[in-house]
Design a protein around this nucleic acid. Structure first.
Lengths: 142, 142
DNA sequence: GTCGGTGCAAAATATTTGCATTGTG
DNA sequence: CACAATGCAAATATTTTGCACCGAC
């Protein structure tokens, strides 16, 4: 997520109210690199706002996704949420289920949207790239 | 999926029995381009093998994924199954939920696995690339 | 005949929805 | 003080699991 205050601003621009729940979700997520589940976000938010409901957290996460403040990742098992909306891929290790960020050359993602727009005539807004493979920690012992 | 008979062969090589259920799942899936849900596969298979259970279809689909005969796609809402294991991307239209294949230059996927292996030290086995955007049919009317 | 495979039913997990209540602007 | 937003509980959807029975080899 770009910046806490930029996010607050965009929330208001969208005509939404800056409730303690929204504020807490944004603050817990900004800077997070762990690709949390909705439930992870909810339990962290609960430390700041006792009593938050999981369904409210789901609603807020979808709103932030719609506003392009976070990315919603469709990973095996469940959705995960990523405050980093810059183009990057994810490496998922089937052994330990760890999710590792993979930086990408912008040229590569341009090639992908170009290929999709040419092949389908669609207007690509964003993409999700997931690579599967044994991570270094789980890999063949040296 | 490469070929019906190649798939049967690989099933046997893996020490699995060629049951009518496995045969039907393979035959219904090979050549399919619709990215079906598990339930879609089950209902088609049911025409050939009355009484197949959904849980058996799930098990068979996972086996085929493990044997690399199909790909399991983690798309929003639910898993979908793709007999085409060659590298290609998917364009998902948020309007109509249609899923369109996007052919890719092998060089592009090589760049991606290269980036991931360099960045994380992982051994990439395969990848899933999903692009989101309004498709031509749903796009701005001319 | 053996042992893997299947069907059934129930469980587990993830996410959505409706509605009464609350609190931001 | 209006109306959006929240919390709760129940509903929905997807996928997994345990076990008794069946059938491929």
């Amino acid at each position: 997520m770009i910046d806490r205050d930029v996010a607050f601003e965009r929330i208001r621009e969208a005509g939404l109210r800056l409730t303690p729940q929204r504020r807490a979700v944004i603050e817990e997520l900004s800077g997070d690199r762990s690709h949390p589940l909705a439930e992870d976000v909810a339990s962290r938010v609960a430390m700041r706002v006792p009593g938050v409901s999981l369904s409210t957290v789901y609603k807020i996460l979808h709103e932030l996704g719609d506003l392009d403040l976070i990315r919603e990742l469709s990973l095996p098992g469940a959705m995960r949420f990523d405050p980093d909306t810059e183009s990057h891929a994810h490496l998922v290790c089937p052994e330990c289920n760890d999710i590792i960020d993979v930086p990408l050359d912008p040229a590569t993602t341009d090639v992908l949207s170009g290929a999709a727009e040419k092949a389908t005539g669609a207007d690509v807004s964003h993409m999700e790239i997931t690579l599967y493979g044994t991570c270094a920690a789980c890999g063949p012992r040296a």
